[in-house]
């Protein structure tokens, strides 16, 4: 009976999420590009063979992974600190809460342009400061070794407030009693953080990790605007590569292959990161 009731919703979800996925999988086994006049022609897994031998795909995977790993960990760390601060009672807290949300509310392209300007050499504020101190120019966006760090910074700046908000919501579900009881048991504030706060925030942290990993793996506009994937392709993400293949090269077959390929990678790495988090938790925890 209940199964029958949720059937329409389930069908809708399958239709909305399943259809494109199936379409992409199907396309990934076809050549469909300007060369074929955009007509899909089955090519027996040639796309997949190409993907596996495509250095650029693996390089972009590596770049996407390190981008996601570093941004998500930094974001969690900073967001937890912000959430803890905002969970305290102090004057002007509400104002600060609202202000911290601003980066999240800003459109990514706008803020990416902002970061591009901030890192601009020689007119951006960072270079101006560096100049004042008397150091050499940074050229952070012009160096393949550092440009990706700048994009991480942009991402952290933008999405930390969002995670902070999730964690803050989580913090507010922890009854004050628990901290008081823990204090009376002889625990310090620091111990409370590791033995109560973080374990109790676990579902919220997991949610943030999952959500943010998926988002960070699909990073597109931030990088497109800040570096365009350069210099030397060092900041190119999988999403940009897939986009290039579809919209610039009109190679829809291979673009679908990249998308499905990265989708598989995302699923595996999400599972892996949750496994890692649980492992870390168990070292800390008392749960049995």
């Amino acid at each position: 009976m209940i199964g029958l009731l949720i059937l329409p919703a389930a069908l809708l979800i399958i239709l909305i999420f399943g259809t494109p996925l199936i379409r992409y999988i199907w396309l990934s086994f076809h050549a469909s590009s300007v060369i074929t006049g955009l007509v899909p022609i089955a090519n027996k897994g040639a796309n997949w063979q190409r993907l596996i031998n495509d250095q650029r795909f693996w390089q972009d995977s590596f770049q996407t992974f390190r981008f996601a790993a570093l941004s998500v960990s930094l974001e969690l760390f900073i967001a937890l600190a912000i959430a803890l601060l905002l969970n305290q009672k102090w004057r002007g807290r509400n104002l600060v809460r609202a202000i911290t949300l601003l980066p999240w509310a800003l459109p990514t392209t706008v803020m990416a342009l902002g970061w591009r300007w901030i890192f601009n050499t020689p007119y951006g504020p960072i270079e101006l400061i560096v100049n004042l101190i008397g150091l050499d120019q940074f050229n952070i966006l012009s160096n393949p070794n550092t440009a990706w760090l700048a994009t991480v910074l942009g991402d952290v700046w933008k999405t930390t407030p969002f995670i902070a908000l999730i964690l803050l919501a989580g913090l507010q579900t922890i009854p004050q009693d628990l901290y008081e009881a823990f204090k009376l048991e002889g625990g310090s504030n620091k111990e409370a953080l590791f033995k109560i706060t973080i374990p109790m925030l676990k579902p919220y942290i997991l949610l943030s990790i999952l959500f943010r990993l998926a988002q960070a793996f699909g990073v597109f506009d931030l990088i497109q605007v800040m570096t365009g994937g350069g210099p030397a392709g060092s900041t190119e993400s999988l999403a940009i590569y897939a986009y290039l293949n579809a919209m610039r090269f009109l190679d829809f077959g291979y673009s679908s292959t990249i998308m499905i390929g990265s989708f598989i990678l995302i699923v595996f790495s999400s599972i892996f990161s949750i496994y890692l988090f649980n492992k870390f938790k168990n070292i800390q925890g008392y749960s049995r």
């Binding site: 628990l178 009881a181 033995k195 109790m200 749960s287 049995r288």
Partner: peptide, 15 residues
């Protein structure tokens, strides 16, 4: 004020 994420034994041990 029991710690919901801990077992009863752990709740008692933590102090």
């Amino acid at each position: 004020a029991l710690f919901p994420h801990l077992s009863i034994a752990s709740n008692l041990t933590i102090g």
